[in-house]
Design a binder for these strands. Structure first.
Length: 505
RNA sequence: GGCCUUGUAGUCAAGCGGCUAAGACGUCGCCCUCUCACGGCGAAGGCCCGGGUUCGAUUCCCGGCAAGGUCACCA
């Protein structure tokens, strides 16, 4: 009847004695932030304990598969440095690591569970009812109907019908009375009445397992010691325990993670345009910053490290404690992420930053005579995201058409008249500079201010407006003139003088 | 609706019976300064509500309220 040898062999393969965690996404979407965070915590738990991090692909629902999403997951894990020790592409002792390649396993275990009296064949065709997910009272009514007659069928009778070719599903036989308690590392002990648990389908009509069943079987067969997953699975955890008990298997530790929210009532979702990991990358955010921020969204270091907020992956591995995981949902805050990103950008060496910034600089500055290497240092302390860069540089290639109102500035004590006067003094002075560099440009300008008994701003402001055409620029006049070059700077000042003369009369 | 969970400033959060309730982002002000940014200094802002228990509750218990999850042959 039962092929005991098969089960013994499967059992024998299971690694024992060390922490093993697994990240088990389904290829149905992109890597959203909650996913990434779960993967991170899962990785950290394993690595902190010197254990094994396993990657498993849960593709039991072929209909919902999204092409390309698998690659996104692999790429994201790789970029983030969340390297797994066992997985579909690298193998391992308990493979295969793709559920669709393990199909025969689930059928055998489902039948084993039937033999053990914790599951039963169900011949009712509920497909019609199940098509449309319903809510509220309706769902409650449907649940009542789930207690079907097949539950009471004798095993011989059921097998006879199976042998006759009748189609069936296998359902879990949940006790109708009593309660079930399970333990979660962050949520503690949770007890639920058994009559609130439904006889969930384990093996579908097509022979494939449901997520809940495949999960339990695989986690056991892969020796997973800590099951890390989203809190949306909290409600099904009691049924998991019943399954483990039904098989006579050891129950793993559970670590449920609260969701990452868009706002107080909605989870982050692609449908609402919330950014995925890849979206954030495209916005010019750094992997280190994303990872660091995400780690702190729902986890915080304790004790002496309580005030530390910048962590590398390695530092996280050391600092990570299960106790620090938060039970309440956390709202994703782009502003704070940007702050982290800005910090990481500033921490880069000038060379590293130039490498990162150059493509962005070049989207705005096409003029080959202008060197990105000269612009990058101005940008480094001034951008939160790399994508901020182009807008800041739009005046380099071409002088924008600006309003002469810009020449009026209270703090610099300038207006159109004063500015015209300053430009007329600065023009010849700058024209006479033979060695065009920042020191000399600055010297010429400050000399004018000193000679006139004015504050530096009074001469700097008008010149900066003239050469940039903008009220706000990265860097000051000195840097901008230096980058533009003498000829272009002079030309722009002449334009400024002309504009002002026309206006002032 | 049943069951489960959560609730410290706008946001992330520390706290684990006694504190002026950490820290960070954001906001505001000041300083630095040729604009902006960086940097420095400072300010405003909070324990969901009501009962208990206790000499004393943000912390423990009960009840509300609010929010979330789940109740699929989806994961």
């Amino acid at each position: 009847m039962v092929d005991q040898k098969y089960f013994d062999e499967m059992e024998a393969r299971i690694p024992k004695g060390r922490v093993r965690t697994r990240f088990a996404p389904s290829p149905t979407g992109y890597m959203h932030i909650g996913n990434l965070r779960t993967a991170l915590y899962t990785y950290l738990i394993a690595k902190k304990a010197g254990g094994t991090f396993v990657f498993r692909l849960e593709d039991t629902d072929k209909k919902r598969e999204v092409k390309g999403s698998e690659e996104v997951i692999y790429r994201t894990l790789k970029e983030c440095g969340l390297t797994y020790d066992e997985g579909p592409d690298i193998g391992g002792p308990v493979g295969p690591y793709v559920q669709s390649e393990r199909q025969d396993i689930y059928g055998r275990y489902a039948e084993l569970l039937v033999e053990r009296g914790h599951a039963y064949y169900c011949f009712c065709d509920k497909a019609d009812e199940a098509e449309e997910p319903s809510e509220g009272k309706e769902a409650a009514d449907k649940f009542a109907k789930i207690m079907d007659p097949c539950r009471e069928l004798s095993l011989e009778e059921a097998k006879k019908r199976v042998a006759a070719g009748e189609s069936y599903v296998i359902r879990q036989k949940v006790p109708t009375e009593g309660t079930t308690t399970f333990h979660d590392i962050s949520y503690g002990e949770i007890t639920v009445p058994n009559d609130s648990l439904d006889d969930q389908v384990l093996l579908k009509r097509d022979g494939l397992p449901t997520y809940n069943f495949a999960n339990v079987v695989d986690d056991h067969l892969m020796g997973i010691t800590h099951v890390v997953r989203g809190s949306e699975y909290l409600a099904s955890a009691p049924k998991y325990n019943l399954l483990y008990e039904g098989f006579g298997w050891e129950i793993p530790e559970y670590v449920h993670c609260s969701p990452v929210m868009r706002d107080a009532q909605h989870k982050m979702s692609k449908r609402h345009g919330d950014p995925s990991y890849e979206d954030l990358k495209h916005m010019g955010l750094l992997t280190e910053a994303i990872l660091n921020y995400v780690a702190l969204l729902g986890w915080s270091p304790r004790g002496e490290l309580a005030e530390k907020e910048f962590f590398t992956l390695t530092e996280l591995t050391e600092a990570f404690e299960l106790e620090g995981i938060s039970k309440s949902p956390a709202i994703f805050d782009m502003e704070k992420l940007k702050y982290f990103n800005a910090e990481y950008i500033r921490a880069k060496s000038p060379e590293e930053f130039l490498k990162l910034a150059e493509p962005y600089i070049r989207t705005a500055v096409k003029n080959e005579a202008i060197s990105p290497a000269k612009i990058a240092p101005l940008l480094q302390p001034r951008c939160e995201m790399l994508s901020d860069i182009p807008d800041k540089l739009d005046f380099f290639d071409e002088l924008p058409d600006y309003d002469i109102e810009l020449y009026t500035n209270k703090k610099s004590k300038t207006n159109a008249d004063v500015s015209l006067n300053m430009l007329k003094k600065a023009l010849p002075a700058l024209s006479s500079v033979s060695d065009w560099n920042m020191d000399n440009i600055k010297l010429v300008l400050t000399d004018i201010a000193e000679a006139e008994g004015l504050k530096n701003a009074t001469v700097m402001w008008p010149v900066r407006i003239a050469v940039s055409g903008k009220a706000v620029t990265p860097g000051g006049v000195v840097e901008i003139c230096d980058i533009l070059g003498k000829e272009e700077s002079i030309r722009r000042m002449e334009i400024g003088i002309k504009k002002l003369e026309e206006a002032v009369g």
